[in-house]
Amino acid sequence: MSHPDKYRLRRTMMFLNCQKPSLIKDPYVYKPDSIMLDLEDAVAEREKDAARYSLYHALQEIDYRGVERVVRINGLDTDLWREDVRCAVAGGCDSIRIPKTETADDVRTVEYAIAEAEREFRRPVGSVLIMAALESARGVINAMSICDSSERLFGIALSGGDFSRDLQVPISGTGVEFMGARQHMIIAARAAKVQCFDTVWTNLDDMEGFRKEVETIHAMGFDGKSIVNPRQIPVVHEIYTPKQKDIVYAEKVVREIEDKRAKGIGVFTVDGKMIDIAFYDGAKRTIALAKASGVYKGDL
């Protein structure tokens, strides 16, 4: 049976440096769906040990009020990641993010270490979920097998900085350099029935550019976006929350399909648009997203 939180709402994942107590003490006040407690790039090399102690005690003592606690471990090419996994699992994290994932074997290697840690620290085996960050051309090309690699894997995320370096192009701000990767990743994620998350937008002075990018990835089908500043959260949530007219229409579609199905009618119209069973799942998703976003008061 699938983990109950595998498909939870993850519109925003806010990166927080575990080295900074001021950042990890109360991020829930900004109401992100998930926080990404970072042991990797944000932490100075000589402070890796300190970041782990901070992470462990924060996970143990701070009530994050339902916000998902994802821990980004160090890369599999370091001698740090195994201890990161032990620390995160012992602390009680919800999920682990694997950086620089290139193959399905990378995921399975971490999955094995997580299972060992779950047994060591007496957590139910299978309780910690995984997400994989794809940061290279090879990782993106292997997106399909990575998505299929583990029952624990709830999603994949594009990591734009490293990916653009691997492509040997600068980040333009237009998203042109990410077009192929984004399209490929969302198709792979949907084929494997896992979630897909977009990369960070780091220019905090350009909120208009940020909004455009979120609108684009929302239209492409991404489940959410990695974020680096609380100011970005309301923008993403606004764009990802179904509008009232879409909710009303989705309700009509669901009710009409169920009614017409009972009467043996396959194709009909709702508000002048042709509808058949193919629209059912989409309408149900809109209702589910509206419910999860707290804007649906109906009875579906």
């Binding site: 107590p21 003490k25 300190a50 102690y53 901070s54 005690h57 924060a58 003592e61 701070i62």
Partner: peptide
């Protein structure tokens, strides 16, 4: 102004 968890960690 550290929380208990930070004092322990440090």
């Amino acid at each position: 102004g550290a929380l208990d968890c930070t004092i322990k960690a440090r």
